[in-house]
Every structure is written in C-alpha cells, then in structure tokens.
C-alpha cells in the first residue's frame, strides 16, 4: 500500500507547497466553524491552484465549486475572505448544504 490511498486526506498542505514551488498561484480554504450536521469537521482543508485544480475537501462536495471560484479571486487579490454556507443562506452563487448544516470557511492566498 503506497501513499495514494491517503493522498486526498493528508497531503493538502504538501500539495499546496508543491504547487507554489512550481510557481503556481495557490489558495487554501479551511473549515473554521460548523453547526448542525456539517459534512466535514473543523480544520478540514482544500487547496486550490489558480487554474481551478484542487485537492482536499471542505464539504461532501456541495460547496467545493463555489469555494474554488472564490479562491481563484483571492489568488488574484490576495485579500482573505470568510465565507458562510448554509441551507437557508442564499449566497450570490446559490449553493448550499443539502444536509441542513452550516459552515464557515476561511479562504486565503498562500505565499
């Protein structure tokens, strides 16, 4: 058994560092608070490359798309943002968590 099975869970920061060493713009999204039946615990991370490639997760797949778009913006601007997602919380991009949970995600540029 190699590293592949664990790759998606544990290598988010390693991947972020590798992308950055390769000269790519990188952002990091981190779950900082959850309420209700949030799919991923506090501390879960997603690294995003400027072209939209990503590794890791901050939800069960519900909001990754929206976070990646925000992250690409933040790679440009450099200003960190705190995002909130919830089933009843209609964000501009109209994504939410079908599970009824709510989460806050901090997104920042790396480097």
């Amino acid at each position: 058994m190699g590293e592949t099975a664990r790759e998606n869970h544990d290598r988010v920061l390693e991947q972020a560092a590798e992308w950055q060493r390769a000269g790519e713009g990188v952002a990091l999204a981190t779950v900082v608070e959850t309420w209700g039946s949030a799919p991923r615990p506090v501390g879960s991370q997603l690294a995003v490359r400027a072209d939209g490639a990503f590794i890791g997760s901050v939800s069960g797949g519900c909001i990754e798309g929206a976070v990646v778009v925000e992250a690409q913006d933040i790679i440009e601007s450099g200003a960190p943002r705190l995002l909130e997602f919830g089933v009843s919380n209609s964000q501009a991009w109209e994504v939410g968590l079908a599970c009824g949970g709510r989460i806050r995600v901090f997104v920042e540029r790396v480097g």
């Binding site: 920061l13 972020a16 990091l28 480097g111």
Partner: peptide, 14 residues
C-alpha cells in the same frame, strides 16, 4: 498563509 508558515507546519509534520 505565508510561505514560511506553511514550511513550518510541513517541517513539524515531517
């Protein structure tokens, strides 16, 4: 996250 912060976390993890 600053580059040196990321390096510090990765070093601790290693």
């Amino acid at each position: 996250m600053r580059r040196d912060t990321l390096a510090q976390i990765l070093a601790a993890r290693a």
